[in-house]
């Protein structure tokens, strides 16, 4: 619970006692982490900043509800996830793609939309394009799969922490992760085949 010289529990106790200024320490410590996750979920700097702000606003308002059994970072990421889900619903970004095998119609739509059919680029540009395409594939995952992938690859969270954040069993985290990675690999392979 102690990191960067700040003891989260002590800081939270002070905030609960009415010392609002202490909350600055929490923001300073965790804003980069929250922003990184928000950015990877939303892929928009302004939106990510807004979401990060909302996370800390909500955390500050409901600081009395914080359960010290969980790491503060876990609680903050959980808030971020819930806010993200709300926005996801609001913006109707629901993914029509199912994470399944052999849906030709869906695959065709996917290819039409995301796979670049232009001539094969040189290696340097190709690598960049491949990275972008992978991000595109991740962006098209449904919210709960995208969150698992984000926390797994970039959040440095264990399965147990991801389970706590998303309030699902560890087994579900593992199965979602497996399906999501499988989906990414399949689509990435399809993209490479297309570029050959």
């Amino acid at each position: 619970m102690e990191c960067n010289g700040i003891n989260d529990i002590e800081v939270i106790e002070k905030v609960k006692e009415g010392n609002s200024a202490e909350f600055e320490k929490i923001i300073t410590k965790y804003s980069k982490m929250i922003y990184s996750i928000a950015y990877r979920l939303l892929r928009d700097g302004e939106e990510a900043r807004d979401l990060s702000q909302d996370v800390f606003l909500r955390a500050f308002r409901f600081i009395s509800k914080y359960n010290p059994e969980f790491k503060l970072s876990t609680w903050l990421v959980r808030i971020a996830y819930n806010l993200y889900k709300d926005r996801f619903k609001t913006k109707k970004l629901h993914i029509v793609h199912q994470i399944s095998h052999g849906d030709d119609e869906e695959n065709k739509k996917y290819e039409e939309r995301f796979i670049d059919n232009s001539p094969r680029p040189d290696e340097k540009v190709e690598n960049k394009m491949k990275s972008e395409q992978i991000i595109n594939i991740i962006n098209r995952l449904p919210a709960n799969y995208k969150m698992v992938i984000t926390l797994y690859f970039w959040g440095d969270h264990s399965y147990e922490e991801i389970a706590d954040i998303m309030e699902i069993p560890v087994g579900t985290v593992k199965s979602r992760l497996k399906r999501a990675k499988n989906y990414l690999l399949e689509n990435y392979s399809r993209l490479l085949e297309k570029w050959k």
Partner: peptide
């Protein structure tokens, strides 16, 4: 991810005066 330079301070300025912790 490129973190904006003034991220923490901008969040602090918006969060601390705007919110009151739930009593």
């Amino acid at each position: 991810v490129e973190i904006p330079a003034n991220l923490a301070s901008s969040i602090i300025s918006k969060v601390i005066p705007a919110a009151e912790p739930a009593k």
